[in-house]
Design a protein around this nucleic acid. Structure first.
Lengths: 215, 215, 215, 215
DNA sequence: GATGAATGAGCCTTCATTCAT
DNA sequence: AATGAATGAAGGCTCATTCAT
């Protein structure tokens, strides 16, 4: 059990993370100042340094946990019963919803640049989770397309599929609407996009040309 | 005719724009300093202020022309002879290449937030060009899908198509590779993506369900 | 008799003073932080403020006792049996050793500037001890030179003698070596310096010219 | 010839160096802030960065030239005609006067710590000049004492002599009096001190014991 | 008595921008 | 037209100090 003081402390830390997350993504890591974060979090800028070594540490702490949550959720969806196409849709939707929910954080997760490459340990951790995420989606896609795991065409297919996912997220990253509003309004569009995508990929697979280098 | 002085003046201004363009695109607007631009342009940093009100004015002046160039190029591609599918591919590729070439600037063009909304006039101009751009792409798509301009399904199709374009650009926005490297390496993938997209959309159209809400 | 609580309290206070003394002397007053002192003392940094008004108060409390210890030691040395020359040497050596041991603190004791002049009481106290110290040395010197206490030549002699003492201390104030290392290595040099000094002063006294202005 | 602007610039630079010199020494390098220096110099703190890369560069620029000036002056005195004793006195007096004139800077010249050891080039330069200085004094002393350059006793003698010089300077470093006041008032004392010193050293040399380890 | 939480003041430094020439 | 000089605002960060428990 936590004392009242520890509770407040935890709350402060959370509000800092929340504020930093919002701001970093909304306006970019470099551009956001510690003082801005503090103001948004409702504390002094020095307080941030009690909880985080420096600005970069804030970024690090911000990056990992949400991704892990998403990974779990995707695991659950993939483990459920249902036809592969349904699973792919659900997983894709979950991914989109997550990214929109964490909105501008999105850049933080997938833009390698924003995390310094010096210290490998944490960096590796993020990359690991990220790769696991992409792996899951690729796996779902593979099942739908009925390709072997080693089929060279799978890489291109997943790349193309990711373009669309990434594009959806990017398109609405800076929207003023809430995630709920967006999902409510656009879920049909997203589902259609997934379907278009899958149909198109299936067509490509079934045709002779695979787009890589075979004649 | 320009006097010698006016020529030199014009030259200075051009070299400043050139330098700023190079640097903004190469390292990002926020990160580049006025002194850097001046050094690259071969003049004093104070000279920049003779030609441009401030750093942001530099950005404004820089934003429009490339977009217009792109618009012209897309016009040319669309006006050329050839099957619609080929045209769509070429126009899409041109769009992608442009966005990757202007990389960090990309956000500036399409992310409404990053351009101050205070002064509407230039903002409007950019928006106009931007909309013209999207219009061209939609038009190409419409021809391929053989839809009427007013067909309600066109909106969804173009949305989905844009998701992919946007996604491609976003994916490589922060890559360290040059445009040429990226295009050299990934053009086949991009073309495949366009094709997949188009095939999928065609399939959707030809099926009864249009993904919106009709029964 | 002290209650257990009072004992603990006293202990904490002592450990703070000990830690502060070590750190101030070792790395300099300005550079040492309250948190460092607290860590070294094994308590929270806020605890320090229970016992001492502020960082400077810590310094004040720290300054006096060692000086008094030195004064006592010099008294003991002067009171012992032995030829005056031997006593002067011993007292001088004790003085040097003390100053080097308290190294960075040295400035604090003798450089009037570094102690705030606002609150006179403690300042005065330090000055009193300091003057007593110099008095003892002068006295030892006087005995060696066989001068009357009022002899005007004594002032110049003691001044000159102090130059050397002060010079020795200054020379090694910023050395990285420990007191023990320094004393071990340089004691013969110091003793030689004292002797040279005394011989030179004796020569001056015995000559007609006293260096001031008498003919 | 300098333009008016260049003159002002030079003046600003000088006033910054002057202010920094005064403050660094008066209150210590670490403790003095750039804003203090700026205020004392009568300019904005950012102006300092126009002339000096950073705080440490200021220190570097401050250290070398005066020392070189002193070195030249000592050379001149040593090269002049006169008995060795007279030369030693003059050189010693010049040294003292210089140190008092540059007052608190003194610490900067001789306290190795204050100059970062990272970059060796400038550091070396200072050390070279400093060593040359001490070399000159030692040389003058050697002539007076009629010792061979290699005589092991010379080292100790020069050390002892330096103690006094260093002590004189240290004693008056924080005095409020001007160098002229001090020299006017105390020159006789200083001369007496040199003489006492020399007499004492001569006595030591002429006796059997040299203070090191011989019996 | 003791402590973790929190903060304001302040430090060095950089940058866009203006002023005087 | 062009420039060197100069500056205010701001940024990341640290530290002595206070407050509430």
């Amino acid at each position: 059990m936590l004392t009242k003081q520890e509770q407040r402390s935890e709350e402060t830390k959370r509000s800092i993370l929340l504020a930093a997350g919002r701001l970093f993504a909304g306006r970019g890591y470099d551009v956001v100042t510690m003082r801005e974060i503090a103001k948004e979090a409702g504390c002094s800028h020095t307080t941030i340094y009690i909880y985080f070594k420096d600005k970069e540490a804030l970024l690090q702490h911000l990056s990992l946990p949400p991704l892990q949550t998403l990974a779990s959720r995707m695991d659950a969806l993939l483990g459920s019963s249902g036809v592969p196409e349904e699973k792919l849709k659900n997983v894709s939707l979950a991914f989109i919803e997550f990214c929109l929910a964490n909105r501008n954080m999105y850049g933080l997760f997938f833009n390698v640049k924003s995390v310094r490459v010096d210290e490998q340990a944490p960096e590796l951790e993020i990359n690991k989770v990220r790769n696991r995420l992409f792996g899951k989606l690729t796996e779902a896609l593979q099942t739908c397309l009925r390709l072997e795991r080693e089929d060279e065409r799978l890489l291109m297919c997943s790349r193309i599929y990711f373009f669309t996912l990434h594009g959806i997220v990017s398109t609405y990253t800076f929207s003023e609407e809430s995630v709920d509003q967006l999902m409510g309004r656009l879920t049909p569009t997203f589902l259609a996009a997934f379907e278009v995508q899958l149909d198109g990929l299936k067509a490509m697979i079934s045709s002779n040309k695979n787009g890589v280098e075979r004649g």
